[in-house]
Structure formats: structure tokens, C-alpha cells
Amino acid sequence: MSDLLGSLSISASGMTAQTQRLRHVSENIANADTPGYHRKTISFGEAMNGGVTPGPVRLDRSDLTRVYDPSNPLADATGHYDGSNVDMVMEIADAREAQRSYEANLRMFDQARQMTQSLFDLLRR
């Protein structure tokens, strides 16, 4: 019985972690055109109960793109300014991966819930 309840907890922690990941991906996409914006990344670790715990949010320190637009108020003497380092293809891939991982955790959660319900139904007889 405790294994079934533990699997509910582990699946729920996975869904929570992927929700947080998707939130950061959404922020990155929303700020793709913001000058000087650094992409946010998040890592995951194992929790004490075997679940997933999100790690600290980190900024991607890769080089910012140089954008040529002399009319921009942020432009330097050469007409360039620092754009963001958000790669939309990477963000879309991360969003899909987070969505699929969330869905897998949701299926596991639902399966464990159904098994727990079946166990309770058997015990009531």
C-alpha cells in the first residue's frame, strides 16, 4: 500500500518539476527579443523520497547575439547592441520534452491512483 502511495508522490513531484521547467521555457520565449536577456535553465535532482526536486535556476552565460540596428537607443557607436541568447528551436524542443515528461508522470499518477482505488475496493468486500 505504501508503495502505491509513494508512487503517487513521486509522480506528483515529477509533474511539479516539469511545470516549473515549462514556466522557465515560457519566460525565455517571452523574452527572446529583450535586449540583454540571458536564457534561464533549471536542473533536477533526486529528492529524499525518490522523487524529483528542482535545482536552482541558472542563467545561461553563453554570448549574447549582436544585433545591428543603429536606430535603437541601446546601440553603441557601431550601431550594434546586445540581443538575447534565447534560441527558439532549443526552447520549443525543451517545451516539448517538458510536456511529454509531464504527460508520462500524469499517466503514472493516474495508473497508481486507479490501482489504489482497486485495492480499496477489494478491501471493502
Rank of each mutant, 00 (worst) to 15 (best):
T78Q: 15
R23K: 09
M88H: 02
E103D: 13
N85A: 12
V25W: 01
S11A: 15
I10C: 08
A93Q: 10
V57W: 04
V89L: 13
Q114H: 02
P35C: 05
R66I: 06
F44G: 04
R107A: 06
S26K: 05
R125N: 03
A30F: 08
D82N: 13
D69N: 15
P70Q: 12
H38D: 07
S26F: 02
F120K: 13
D87R: 10
T41H: 12
S11T: 10
N49M: 06
R113C: 00
A77P: 13
Q18R: 04
Q20L: 11
Q111H: 06
T34H: 07
R113F: 00
G36T: 00
L22W: 02
T78E: 15
G79A: 14
Q18W: 00
N72K: 12
H24L: 15
V89R: 10
F44R: 06
D60Q: 12
M115D: 10
S26D: 04
L59D: 10
T78S: 15
A104P: 09
R39L: 05
S26V: 06
P35T: 02
L122M: 15
M1C: 05
M1S: 13
G50V: 00
L5T: 13
Q99F: 08
N72S: 15
T53V: 12
V89Y: 02
Y81G: 03
R96E: 12
R21I: 00
L122Y: 08
D3S: 15
L123D: 09
D76V: 12
R124P: 04
G50H: 00
K40C: 09
L8K: 08
S71F: 03
L123T: 13
V67W: 06
Y81V: 06
S71L: 11
T19M: 11
R96Q: 13
A93F: 02
P35Y: 00
I10G: 06
D94V: 02
N28E: 09
M108G: 08
E27M: 13
G36S: 03
T116A: 14
E46S: 03
F109I: 06
A95K: 03
M108I: 11
I29L: 12
V86F: 01
V89I: 14
D33N: 14
Q114A: 06
D3M: 14
F109Y: 06
F120Y: 07
R39H: 07
I42T: 14
T53Q: 11
A93C: 09
I92S: 14
S84D: 13
L106K: 08
P54W: 00
R21Y: 01
L106A: 14
T53F: 01
S26N: 07
L8S: 03
R58I: 09
R107H: 02
H80I: 12
F120G: 14
A17D: 07
L119S: 14
M90F: 07
G55K: 03
A17C: 12
D63R: 09
Y37M: 10
R124M: 10
N72E: 15
E103I: 05
A112I: 01
A112F: 02
I10V: 14
G51L: 07
H80M: 15
Q20E: 11
A30K: 08
D87F: 01
N28Y: 00
